[in-house]
Nucleic acid binder design. Structure first.
Lengths: 309, 309
DNA sequence: GACAAAGCATAACTGCTCGTTATCCAGATG
DNA sequence: CATCTGGATAACGAGCAGTTATGCTTTGTC
């Protein structure tokens, strides 16, 4: 019934004291104000201005509108400003989910980049393995998921949802073999996976375990899995004690070493691809895009420094 | 840039969780919501909703708008309600000016009528003689003026402004002659003005004085004016003491008597016309119209009860 | 007192915004 | 696989909100 434009006009008339003045102040023509007031008057069924001689004066009802205009317009401005702040990266919140081994260096570095460039953008961060993070993304519980997929498979589990999601590849993460330093193969340059058929294996997260089984099957054997843990530090510890061997993504080895563990390339080579995933809609949100950019840069800025030996 | 309708839509989407729900709640069609959101998005340059599968979810910016919508819309509603209250006579203030002798009975009775009918309409009241009250009306310092004009002249002083003002006649007020009870003519039924050429005269307010001089001139003499006072109670006192005779409007005699004063019709008869004056604009204000009605009724309800002896 | 200036109202016109209906497409559901 | 629900799109129509041009009244001035 009554709109913000009308209130703005009433306030301008109240401030300027004339239609012409209000028109000037608002950048309208004088007749525009004239008929605006008339419309308002017939909408509210009330006289809003007295035409007195050649100038005008607000009636009580008109003054009421002019008075309320301040409240309405300032609330409107506040809303507009807040949205503009989000659009202009002067505000905004990005909810990021990433799998544990990415949170060691890649994610912190990206977060630092965002914070440096847009101090007022808040990136919140939760650890989650790819299946959950993608589910959360789909459920709207996060805006960005850093996920990985072993070679051959896509990032979206299996092949579904690949049209729903938008992915940006961050880096390739080589999977290496972790051996106790005392192991006979520890001095080799590269190890054939098939040579490890008799070893005791230590498996990581469920998907990594699946990948291990897959690779071994391709190599013609079924591994003995003696331990399972999602904690790669624990894996290194187990390997160091000679309790088994393990496949460990290089990304983890960049931060977690163990003196008694040697890591080597394996054949056939295996890598996992690390990507950041979002939706087409969310990607158009400036803060989300900025975070993606930061992640891409953080991944590039860190050329693969091998952490073997 | 951003309007109340847009906020209303965003809030409805937030509340209902879907475009269709919002459309239903607001009485729009579903496509209306769809393109409304699109318009808002390209105006703000921001993504406001995520299209996720077959339903939607607000982005951070969208939630910001939905949140602010409450403030804006409630302020708007408050303004609308307040104007509606004025239009519906559930509020409003009328500034009335009336000349002193009308404030004795006519105005109080009218005010009581208004208060009885519309308890929330506030009528403020100031005493003022017609020239000032009309000036105040023109200057916007009052909404309603109760004024009088002696027979022959219009209410608006002279003839000017008669198109600016709107007048409603309230009553005719006969001007009577006040004599000391001991005066030789005190027992007559009616007195010829010309028979009073030698009397000492007591004049009232400036305009009344002017009228007295005019009448006497018409009757062929120039009165000796011994006293002037705007206080008619004082006039009666002076007359009672035999210090002179006076012309007194009947309206005053209804409330102010004096035991030693006799009032009689004079010839040629003289009356003044009492009217309520406002502007065309103000007359369309409900509270003003209601007060006019009350004044008219108060004047009618009081048939001329002569207060002579 | 006539004339110029200032200010509001009105008229006629235009463009675009905002709503409609009809239709299509995708995701959820049994 | 069929169906249903929900959103997007297209096409269209009405009405509103602006514009310019003009007239009228009031006011101030020579």
């Amino acid at each position: 019934m009554i709109d913000a434009a009308g209130l703005r006009v009433m306030k301008a008339i109240s401030d300027e004291g004339s239609f012409t003045g209000a028109a000037l102040a608002l950048g309208y023509s004088q007749p525009a104000i004239s008929q605006m007031v008339r419309r308002l008057e017939q909408r509210t069924g009330t006289v809003l201005v007295e035409r007195i001689g050649r100038n005008v004066r607000l009636t009580e009802a008109g003054q009421v509108l002019a008075r309320h205009a301040v409240a309405v317009l300032s609330a409107l401005d506040a809303a507009e400003e807040e949205v503009a702040a989000i659009a202009g990266l002067r505000a905004g919140r990005v909810r990021l989910m990433a799998f544990p081994s990415s949170s060691a260096t890649l994610v912190p570095r990206a977060l630092a980049l965002v914070k440096q460039r847009f101090p007022d953008v808040q990136v919140t961060f939760t650890e989650a393995e790819p299946p959950e993070s993608l589910a959360a993304l789909k459920a709207g519980e996060c805006d960005l998921a850093v996920a990985f997929a072993y070679e051959g498979t896509d990032v979206g589990r299996g092949e579904e949802d690949m049209d729903l999601f938008v992915t940006h590849k961050l880096l390739d993460d080589e999977v290496r073999l972790a051996l106790p330093r005392a192991h006979p193969l520890a001095t080799a340059d590269m190890v054939e996976l098939s040579a490890l058929a008799q070893e005791n294996w230590i498996a990581g997260c469920p998907r990594c375990r699946g990948h291990l089984l897959q690779m071994c099957a391709n190599a013609g054997f079924s591994p003995h899995v003696g331990f399972e843990t999602e904690d790669y530090v624990a894996v290194l510890g187990l390997v160091a004690e000679g309790l088994g061997v393990a496949l460990i993504p290089d990304l983890i080895l960049r931060t977690a070493h163990h003196h008694d563990v040697v890591t080597l390339p394996i054949n056939p080579a295996s890598r996992r691809s690390v990507s950041v995933v979002t939706t087409a809609d969310l990607q158009r949100v400036p803060a989300v895009q900025a975070t993606i950019d930061a992640l891409v840069e953080a991944a590039k800025a860190k050329p693969r420094v091998l952490a073997s030996t």
